[in-house]
Structures are given as C-alpha cells and as structure tokens.
C-alpha cells in the first residue's frame, strides 16, 4: 500500500466559541488543497455551554472519522481546562495550541468543582510541545470576542502541511462574500495569532 499520511486535528472548546466553524474552515482549506477530508460535527446539546470537540482528518484517503486517543497531531484548545481535558488525545510528538482565557462553567461558580490551579503547567508536565497565549485578549482588543476563532487558526497556520496563506484566504473568503467589512479585522486577527504562536 502506498503511504497514506493522515493529519489529525482535534479542535476542543466550549459551545458558542466557534469550535465548529474553525474545524469547518480547516476542512475546507484541506479540501481545496486536494486532500480527502472527514470532519465530525456535533450539534444539539453542544450549543449550551457544554464541551465541544470536532475532529478533522485529512490525507490521501480518510476512512474512520474519529481521531483515536493518542493520535492527534495538533490540538487546538480554545480554553485552558479544555486543552488539559483533551491533552492525552495528542501524539507525544504532536503540538498543542492553547488559548489561555479561562471560562468557568456554572458548576465551578456554584462551588461544586474547582477550576484546575494551573492547567498550562499540567500540560507542560506531559512533555508535549505546546504554545499558550491569550487569544481571548487579542480578540477583545480587536473589539470582537468572536475573533478568537480566527486568532487560533492563525496560531496553528504554520504547523499545517499546506501554506498558511491558504488557510487565511479560506477565512477571508467567507467574509468577502457576506460581510466585507470584517475582512480586514479577520486578517489582523489571523496575523496576530500567527505571531503569538511563534
């Protein structure tokens, strides 16, 4: 059999953060680069503040849509505790990209559970390569919290087996048609994410 290299990207976060959109953009870019792609979508309960993950797999031919534990090449963590929750899904030689803005669920607010003291150092302790930065703060500074999504995509853009520009164009194309006013700000968000991860 010819070698079928498959890239596995796990996007993890919380309902409402744009995890699905990020995964969709990654998938569409991989498709435009000529890969076969499979992507899981979880809807329904996911809207309501629960854990959301999307698996994106691309290569010559992709069969099973789910990334087995320990086989993700990239973990895109939209929230530090979520990154920690999913870290063991990563290959030992994989990379975790983490937004450090915390989002406490009601169970923590109510005092039923504790938020991990320092999720990033727990991740560091696994020995895996990771980049942690405050994507939330970047988005807020740009004036729109929803930009976290684009910031995170910018951050992983240099890790992908296709040019970062392809990913950026895929994002910007989505706005060019429908909301041209947002093109510039998304480009900025993408570039800031890209720099923050270096």
């Amino acid at each position: 059999m010819s070698e079928n290299k498959i890239t596995n990207i796990l996007v993890a976060g919380i309902g409402g953060q744009g995890v699905m959109t990020a995964a969709e953009i990654l998938s569409q870019t991989a498709l435009s680069q000529g890969f076969d792609v499979k992507k899981t979508e979880v809807a329904g309960m996911a809207q309501r503040g629960g854990v959301v993950t999307s698996h994106v797999r691309f290569g010559t031919r992709v069969l099973s849509p789910a990334i087995p534990p320990g086989e993700a090449d990239i973990l895109v963590g939209f929230e530090p505790a979520e990154a920690l929750r999913w870290i063991s899904h990563l290959r030992p030689c994989g990379v975790a990209m983490i937004n450090t803005t915390r989002q406490e669920p009601p169970v923590v607010s109510l005092g039923l559970y504790d938020y991990p003291q320092d999720p990033i150092s727990e991740i560091a302790a696994t020995g895996v390569e990771y980049h942690a930065f405050d994507a939330g703060a970047i988005a807020r500074e740009l004036g729109n919290f929803k930009l976290v999504n684009t910031v995170m995509l910018g951050a992983i853009s240099e890790l992908l087996p296709f040019p970062a520009e392809a990913l950026k164009n895929e994002i910007l194309d989505r706005f060019r048609g429908r909301k041209p006013t947002l093109v510039e700000i998304n480009e900025k968000a993408f570039e800031l994410g890209r720099q923050a991860s270096l």
């Binding site: 919380i14 309902g15 309960m45 996911a46 809207q47 309501r48 503040g49 629960g50 854990v51 534990p69 320990g70 505790a81 979520e82 920690l84 929750r85 999913w86 870290i87 063991s88 990563l90 290959r91 030992p92 030689c93 669920p105 009601p106 169970v107 923590v108 559970y113 504790d114 938020y115 991990p116 999720p119 727990e122 991740i123 302790a125 696994t126 020995g127 895996v128």
Partner: peptide, 20 residues
C-alpha cells in the same frame, strides 16, 4: 516519546450542557 498518560486531565471538572 511514550504516549501521554491518558489520566492527564481526567480530573478536570465536568462541563455539562447548561441552560442558556
């Protein structure tokens, strides 16, 4: 490297769906 210990992160609080 050895696989990341599957127990890492196992203690993270649950994040069940909530009402909006």
């Amino acid at each position: 490297a050895p696989r990341i210990d599957p127990a890492t992160g196992a203690n993270v609080f649950p994040r069940p769906p909530t009402m909006c």
